Computed example of a mutant assay.
Amino acid sequence: MQTKSILGEQEIQAMLQAATAKAHENNWQVAVAIVDDGGHLLGFSRLDGCAPVAAHIALEKAKSAALGRRETKGYEDMINGGRTAFVSAPLQGLLEGGVPVVVDGQVIGAVGVSGLAKELDAEVAKVAVAAIG
Rank of each mutant, 00 (worst) to 15 (best):
A130Y: 02
E11W: 00
S88M: 14
L7T: 14
G74N: 12
H24C: 08
D121A: 03
G98H: 14
F86C: 10
A58Y: 01
L41G: 08
T20Q: 04
G81R: 10
A51E: 07
K126N: 11
E60F: 02
G68W: 02
G93T: 14
A65W: 03
V129W: 04
V111C: 00
T3Q: 07
F44S: 04
V30Y: 10
G112A: 00
A128V: 04
L16C: 06
Q92F: 05
A130F: 02
G38T: 10
Q10T: 15
T20P: 01
A18I: 02
E25D: 15
V113Y: 05
L42C: 00
V35P: 03
A19D: 04
A89M: 10
A54D: 12
V124L: 11
A85R: 05
D104W: 03
K63T: 08
I34E: 08
F44H: 07
D48Y: 07
G97T: 10
A31F: 05
G68L: 02
A14L: 06
D36E: 02
E11M: 07
G49I: 03
G82T: 01
A122R: 09
Q13T: 15
A55E: 07
R83Y: 14
A128Q: 00
G8Y: 02
K126L: 11
V111T: 04
Q10G: 10
T84S: 14
A125I: 10
L16T: 09
G109R: 04
G43I: 01
I6M: 06
G8R: 03
F44D: 06
L59H: 14
V32C: 11
G43T: 05
A128P: 00
L91Q: 07
G8P: 00
L47K: 08
A18E: 08
G68A: 11
G68Q: 00
L120K: 14
A14H: 01
K22C: 11
H56M: 07
V113G: 08
A14V: 08
V102H: 09
A19Y: 06
V102M: 05
A117N: 01
G109C: 04
L67G: 06
G74W: 01
A33P: 06
Q106I: 14
T84L: 13
T72P: 11
L95E: 12
R70V: 13
E60M: 09
L7P: 03
Q17K: 15
K22Y: 12
L7D: 04
L42P: 07
A14C: 01
S64V: 14
L67D: 02
K63P: 00
E25W: 00
G112R: 01
E96R: 15
M78L: 09
D121T: 02
T20I: 05
R46H: 10
A31R: 11
L120H: 09
R69M: 13
S88G: 13
A21L: 04
A58R: 01
E119G: 09
I57R: 03
G109F: 03
V102P: 09
I34N: 04
A14F: 07
G82L: 02
V124Y: 02
V102D: 00
R69D: 01
Q92L: 15
T20A: 00
F86K: 06
G74L: 10
Q13R: 11
G68S: 11
S45M: 03
G38S: 13
V124H: 06
E96I: 15
V30H: 08
A66R: 11
H56T: 15
L120C: 13
S114C: 07
L95R: 14
L42W: 05
L116A: 06
E119W: 13
P90N: 09
C50W: 05
